[in-house]
Amino acid sequence: MTAPTIDQLREFRLQEGFSLRQVGERMGVHSSTIGSWESGRYLATPERLQQYATALGWREQRRKPPRTVNRGAAAPATSWQEQAYCRGVDPQPFFSNDAVVQQYAKDLCRACSVTAECLEWALGWGAAQTGIAGGLTDEERSRLRRNLNRRVREAL
């Protein structure tokens, strides 16, 4: 079973009537930590999400159906940015010049399910986008962009 999303856990917590304090006590963390995860201010690791799910007694088959909002057939329920693993994480590592810190940011990107969408977005911004995006530094994206342009010219 995969870990549920923080939004699913928040909804389940509210449906079941748990307070942030109650869940925090079960997990051994402060209630503000859980509140920060739920608000997107900080990112909960997959392991912490699983621990949160266990504290709530989450089981996929026990989960109540989510509330649905009719957004129209063409509109996705969430954008790729809302699904990004880095959402709510301190942005400093993504703009550091330190290679070790950059590697940490790249590792976050590798763990993300929307890396391709992020890279496509970053490539579309051209040289204006700095820092790590889509798992690549601005220099690496510039190199990729040059190689792609060269291949296109060769193919024509």
Rank of each mutant, 00 (worst) to 15 (best):
T54I: 05
Y85W: 12
G57K: 07
T68M: 10
W121H: 15
A111F: 00
R41K: 12
P93M: 05
N97P: 02
W125R: 14
Q81S: 10
E60S: 10
Q50H: 08
R110L: 13
S79L: 04
E139D: 14
L123I: 08
A116K: 13
T78C: 03
D98I: 07
L49H: 03
I132G: 00
L119W: 07
E140Q: 15
W125K: 15
A133E: 03
A44H: 08
G135M: 07
A74C: 04
N97L: 10
Y85E: 08
A73G: 03
V101H: 07
T68P: 02
R63C: 09
A133F: 04
G124T: 11
G134F: 09
Q81K: 14
T78L: 13
T137I: 03
R87M: 07
G131Y: 03
F94I: 01
L136W: 05
C86W: 07
A105K: 09
F94T: 02
A55P: 00
L136Q: 12
R59T: 05
R141S: 05
A84Q: 11
N70W: 12
A73H: 07
G131D: 02
A111G: 11
I132M: 01
A116V: 13
Y104I: 13
W58Y: 15
G126Y: 00
S96K: 06
A75M: 12
C118I: 04
R67W: 02
N70F: 14
T115H: 05
R62K: 08
V89Q: 10
R110T: 10
R63E: 11
T78P: 00
Q102I: 15
